[in-house]
Amino acid sequence: MEEFAFAFLNGDILREAWPILWQGFLYTLALAAITVPLGLVGGVVLALLSTSGPRAIRLAAAGWTDLFRAIPPLVLLVFLYAGLPFAGIDVGAWGAVAIGFFLNTGAYYGEVLRAGIESVPRGQMEAARSTGLSRGQALRYVILPQAVRNVLPDLVSNTLEVVKLTSIASVVALPELLFQARQAQNATYNATPIVAAAVAYFLLLWPLVRLISRLENKALAGR
């Protein structure tokens, strides 16, 4: 037991590692604050293209979505970070994370929002247009609000996944929470910093997990 506490819950090591863990935590928050909106923008564009464009564009958008849902995000990130420089394109760690998350989470948000838009009856668009709203106005004021409400649990759940996914930025050496915890672990030969990082992720995301459970149960009860 003592051995366990020394290896995993070591107060001295935690105190020593605290400053860089805290920095990592803030970095993770910043990453989430950038990647979630990026993914949402990509998702809205994809969802609109795959529901209201001409047939060829709809098919292309669906193909694009499937492509980036099939490639694991880490593969995409490694490709952008370590592969592209061979072709003389160096986007850097930040660029790789931004592009990778835009492509990957955009595809996931796109799929969720597409399902939402398709769940709104066709008559809504026709009625909105017949009152004199333009297509864009009808989308903005009538279709999207209903679409978002219909798939709210999936949207929140996808957002949770995006925040969790920011941990892969450690692979390209961005100093987020997991990266800092690994650094601290390497410096101290002790697993406490990683345990601390896991606790931090859990405390940050548990409320979101609870919220998703409640939203899902409510959606289920409403059927």
Binding site: F8, I194, A198, Y201
Partner: peptide, 20 residues
Amino acid sequence: FRALPPLVIIVLLFFGLPAM
């Protein structure tokens, strides 16, 4: 296990458990 990023769990099991 819904809240923790999978990579964090992998790193914890692989680099953490040998200490025990």
